[in-house]
Simulated scan of single mutants.
Amino acid sequence: MCRKISYGANQYGPIDYFDSANYALGAGGREKENNVTIVTNYHFTPDIKNLIKGRTSHHLSKDLDYTLRAIPNNVVALDTASRFQKKRQDSVTYAKDQKPLPYFVDCYFKRAIDIFGPKQPQLWMVWAIHKHRNGLYQDALKYYQLAVTNGLKSAELDYNMGLTYFKLGSYEEARVKAKSAYQQGYQLPGLKILLEDAGYPIE
């Protein structure tokens, strides 16, 4: 159950990450910044993306939460939040060093869908990756299928969907997705190797 995510002290938002108007220079009264970079330049730095530390505080969760309250559908920040939550779960040392986000990651995804609607397929794909990352493969497949239903076509989608099919033991479906991904030029060999080892080579 998700508590309602308020804007708190946020000065900006909600900003649509996929609206080109939010990338126009001069937005927000700043000559060399746009609506997105006004937030991300200060609250979504490389150290935060790499799960090292925050900018306004050592605890990166503060800046990451600010970013997601201001730009709810920032899929890069959503994936960072997913990796951050998983790293805290997997490392006692990291969990002691870094305070948790104030909301579960699923709640940030749900809020993005509630605000901007279900027809932004990149949101579904990144949410599916989050589900896969946490071993919820049936949920991941459902969200990948929603990404497809809403018009997303990409090698990355096919590759990641193939990984989920593989985890579910659906090797033939995984092979179909793998072939599509590699035909589109996808580079990572991991899925190909998994299928070969399982007796389902893509060639």
Rank of each mutant, 00 (worst) to 15 (best):
K179A: 10
T56R: 08
Y143H: 10
K192C: 04
P72V: 06
V36M: 10
S57V: 02
T149N: 08
I48F: 01
V75E: 13
R83L: 05
Y143T: 07
K179C: 10
E156A: 12
D65R: 01
S82W: 05
D158Q: 14
R83M: 06
V39K: 01
S61C: 11
S57H: 08
K62G: 05
V39R: 01
L78H: 02
M125L: 15
I48R: 07
K177Q: 15
K4E: 07
G54V: 14
I202E: 06
Y66M: 12
N160F: 13
K153G: 05
Q85V: 04
K96F: 02
G199S: 14
R111N: 12
I202W: 10
T37V: 05
D47K: 05
R133C: 02
N134K: 10
S170R: 13
A77M: 09
L191R: 11
Q184A: 12
N41G: 04
S180M: 12
N22V: 05
Y200S: 03
D90G: 03
L191S: 05
G29L: 11
K167T: 07
Y137F: 12
Y108W: 06
S180A: 11
G169D: 12
N35T: 08
K4Q: 10
H58F: 12
L25H: 02
V176W: 02
F104Y: 00
Y137K: 10
K53F: 09
I5Y: 01
Y144F: 15
Q89C: 03
I5T: 02
H132Y: 14
G185V: 07
R30E: 08
P46W: 12
R111I: 06
E33M: 11
T40Q: 03
H43Y: 14
L60P: 08
R83T: 02
Q11E: 15
S180F: 06
A174L: 11
L51Q: 07
I48S: 04
G151H: 04
K87M: 11
K86L: 15
Y186Q: 09
H132V: 04
N10P: 07
T149K: 13
V148W: 01
E196Q: 12
K119T: 15
S61I: 03
Y186T: 04
K179S: 05
A178W: 09
K53D: 14
Y108A: 03
T93M: 09
A181M: 14
G28R: 07
L168N: 08
P201A: 13
K167Q: 15
L78M: 13
D79K: 01
G29T: 01
D106G: 03
Y17Q: 15
D19M: 09
T56I: 15
T37F: 01
V176H: 06
D47I: 03
S82Y: 04
I113L: 15
K87F: 11
D106M: 05
N160I: 11
Y200P: 02
T40G: 02
P121Q: 08
I202T: 07
W127E: 05
D19W: 05
W127D: 08
H130I: 00
C107E: 06
L141W: 07
Q145D: 15
Q184L: 13
L163W: 07
T93K: 11
G135D: 13
K192L: 04
T45I: 10
K53V: 15
L195G: 08
R55F: 11
G169R: 08
Q89S: 11
Q120D: 15
A147L: 12
